[in-house]
Simulated scan of single mutants.
Amino acid sequence: MKLLRIEDNEEHAMFRRTIKAFLAGLRELEPEWEETGIVPRSVWLKAGELGMLGPTVPEEYGGLGLDRRFAAIAIEEQARALLSGPGFCGHSNMTTPYITRYGTHEQKAKWLPGTVTGEVVTALAMTEPDAGSDLKAIRTTAIRDGDDYVINGSKIFITNGISADLFIVACKTDPTARAKGISLMLVEADRPGFEKARNLKKLGRKTQDTAELFFENVRIPAANLLGEDGKGFAHMMTELAWERLQAGIEALGACEGMMDQTIEYTKNRRAFGKSISEFQNTRFKLAELATQIQFLRVMVDRCLDLACEDKLDGTTAAMIKYSSSELQGRVADECLQLHGGNGYMWEYPICRAYADARIQRIWAGTSEIMKEIIARDLFE
Results as ranks from 00 to 15, higher is better:
F15D: 01
L53S: 05
L53C: 04
W44H: 06
S42R: 08
T36D: 14
G51D: 15
E28T: 05
T36S: 13
V43K: 00
A13E: 08
I19E: 02
L23W: 10
L53I: 15
M14H: 03
E49V: 09
V39E: 07
A47F: 15
A24T: 07
E28M: 02
I38Q: 03
P40E: 00
G25A: 07
L26Y: 15
K46P: 14
E49T: 12
R41C: 03
R41I: 04
L26K: 01
W33F: 14
L53Y: 10
I19R: 01
K46G: 15
K20S: 07
F22K: 00
E32K: 11
L53W: 11
K46M: 10
M52E: 02
E35P: 01
L29F: 08
H12A: 07
W33Q: 04
A47M: 12
E30G: 00
L29R: 10
L45E: 14
I19N: 05
A47P: 12
M14N: 14
A13N: 06
R16S: 13
R27S: 15
T18H: 06
A13Q: 12
E28H: 02
W33H: 01
E32R: 11
K20I: 13
E49Y: 01
I38Y: 07
R16P: 11
A21R: 07
R16G: 12
H12W: 15
F22A: 02
V43N: 10
L45R: 03
W33G: 03
F22H: 04
G48Q: 09
